[in-house]
Design a protein around this nucleic acid. Structure first.
Length: 555
RNA sequence: UGGGAUGUCGCCAAGUGGUAAGGCAACGGGUUUUGAUCCCGUCAUUCGCAGGUUCGAUCCCUGCCAUCCCAGCCA
């Protein structure tokens, strides 16, 4: 799956729009952009947006710019620009040319502001933040004009220059567009274009003390870069009015092929949150070990958990693009990762809840070296060496004293079962400890069943996995579950009431000896258990469970 | 009577005046030294509701209903 391009392209409203624009000749190429604010780590929701922006551009032989929307130095940090670049590359996308920054257009933005002022379309307003709010009116009542709204053009030119020169203190005044204080779109009631911030910016240092607002900077950045289709999420639908207004009122950008904004619905995934604030809370309160905790829906968390870039791209395609508010079933994500991993993950055996099994008719001291396929459906992946001897470990879950019904396929007393890649065995008796827990299982094996079925025609239905005790290596298994109990944690202001106390279970068991060579983030399929990858932040052999195998076994 | 959006199978999601794609999940059956994979099959007389236009509507019109977004000098 990893590198195959689907023959059938998905159809969605964005592609329909692009097709229309290409057919009409409005645009001859497709240019998109992914515009993260460097104030946090990327998560699965961003991944969807990345796939849409980069993926769509690529499919149309266009390109996508990576543009950091860094207009608020108070909240942003270089740390995030680095992690964001890393995550996008890891997902398998390349941006066009150099990384772009809104901040590198600050000079152009400033000139645009001057143009607006000179056209009488912007003014410096001295209302306080509180007064501005009062003047704005409410959803049902119109606002009222600022006292500064009709001050002269030249006066405003001087004032704006003073703002830039640092002659006003933070909050003393702002530059506002002169649009319509009675507009039904709140964002059109003379929106703020520039505010004063005496902050050092990670790209422009102390060059500026005035910073543009998102609504002002975004459309201009798009226009400067020649973006054709500016794709964002639904909550910006109202903002489209200011986006269009600005581009229509600036001489340089009022062109028929100017950018247009289209909004799609953001990703909501069951049992997870994509709220940066809530994610940060989980980290700060130590409910998780960090931003890359394998339970986190961050790109770095998914990566550490064993998700592959291909699986995330596939997931993005499976959920599609629309304008409907939705809550996506986790099984769609799990389906994507299982499909990818099933195709590429080397097979291995590991015992997570070990219990000793002794083969009484197998010679003591004998150790056999056996071959096992690395991938049963892909011989090209070769074979691996596994060991077999008198004492093995099997999983507690694979043994009961008496089988509950005739569909039961695991080990029970007097029942035969195949040891995966090895012999058929039959359990004879077992020992328990003081608490009555099964401690050791004794069995006999049929020496004539290696690589073949019993010659007398006996049918052995069940297959269980094992690992030879002297060669096995100890391993820690981290079994993850959803972080929240409620499928829609967005409903909760306080997430603590819906936190899943069992989102991490640690088990100590054994793995095949060759697992000692496992590289971090390399995913294996432990047969009958699921997919696991070696943890990238731990010293010993720590295996993170990516996802289990599909389990259709119902009693 | 603020405005902007959205409502198609349990979850995503195409379609659009000609009689409902696909994926996930689920459920049957087959293959199988992973209860996995793979294969085959089943799964919306119906498109939020109610009217209307039409030979014919999920698609057009009208009216309802439900949900989401907007009153940062955040993005």
């Amino acid at each position: 799956m990893s590198d195959t391009i689907p023959l059938k392209k998905p159809t969605n409203f964005i592609r329909n729009q692009i097709n229309t624009d290409l057919d009409s000749g409005l645009h001859s190429s497709v240019i998109t952009r992914f515009p993260p604010e460097p104030n946090g780590y990327l998560h699965i929701g961003h991944a969807k947006s990345i796939c849409i922006n980069f993926g769509t551009a690529k499919d149309y032989d266009g390109w996508c710019n990576l543009r950091f929307d860094d207009t608020n130095p108070a909240k942003e940090d270089i740390e995030y620009v680095n992690s964001i670049k890393k995550d996008i590359k890891w997902l398998g996308f390349d941006w066009n040319g150099e990384v772009k920054y809104s901040s590198s257009y600050f000079n152009i933005f400033y000139k645009c502001a001057e143009e607006l002022i000179s056209k009488g379309l912007a003014y410096v307003c001295f209302l306080s933040a509180d007064e501005t709010r009062e003047y704005r009116g409410t959803l049902k009542q119109p606002g009222k004009n600022s006292p500064d709204r009709d001050s002269g053009i030249e006066h405003n030119q001087t004032l704006f220059k003073k703002m830039k020169e640092g002659e006003f203190i933070e909050g003393e005044c702002v530059l506002r567009a002169k649009i319509d204080m009675s507009s039904s779109f709140m964002c059109m009631r003379d929106p703020t274009l520039y505010r004063i911030r005496f902050e050092t910016h990670h790209q422009t240092n102390d060059d500026w003390c005035i910073y543009p607002m998102y609504d002002f900077a975004h459309c201009l950045g798009d226009a400067i870069e020649g973006v054709t289709h500016s794709l964002c999420t639904l909550e910006f639908q109202d903002n489209r009015r200011i986006y269009d207004w600005l581009l229509e009122h600036l001489d340089e950008f009022k062109k028929t092929d100017r950018p247009h904004q289209y909004e799609f619905s953001r990703l909501n995934l069951e049992y997870t949150t994509t709220s940066k604030r809530k994610l940060k809370l989980l980290v700060d309160s130590n409910h998780v070990s960090g931003w890359n905790d394998p339970r986190m829906p961050t790109i770095s968390g998914l990566r550490r958990r064993g998700y592959t870039p291909a699986s995330i791209r596939d997931f993005s395609e499976r959920v599609g693009v629309s304008k409907v508010n939705s809550l996506t079933d986790v099984s769609i994500l799990e389906g994507s990762i299982r499909d990818d991993l099933n195709a590429i993950a080397p097979r291995s055996m590991a015992v997570i809840n070990p219990i000793k099994l002794v083969i009484e008719n197998y010679p003591s001291g004998k150790l056999e070296s056996l071959k096992a396929a690395i991938h049963p459906q892909n011989e090209g992946m070769g074979e691996r060496e596994i060991f077999f001897g008198r004492e093995l470990y099997i999983d507690k879950e694979d043994f009961v004293e008496v089988a509950p019904n005739n569909k039961y396929k695991r080990l029970a007393i007097n029942k035969e079962v195949r040891l995966r890649n090895a012999y058929v065995i039959k359990a004879t008796h077992f020992e328990t400890d003081e608490e009555g827990q099964v401690k050791t299982i004794y069995c006999s094996y049929d020496s004539d069943t290696l690589g073949k079925n019993p010659s007398d025609g006996r049918k052995v239905k069940g297959v269980i996995h094992f690992v030879e005790s002297s060669k096995a290596i100890s391993a820690e298994f981290r079994i993850y579950d959803r972080l929240f109990l409620d499928p829609n944690p967005a409903k909760f202001d306080d997430l603590s009431s819906t936190l899943n106390p069992n989102s991490l279970k640690t088990k100590y068991g054994f793995a095949e000896p060759n697992l000692s060579q496992a590289k971090p983030e390399m995913v294996y399929q432990f047969e009958r258990e699921g997919y696991f990858c070696r943890d990238s932040e731990s010293e010993g052999l720590v295996l993170n469970k990516t996802v289990g195998l599909r389990d259709t076994w119902n009693q």
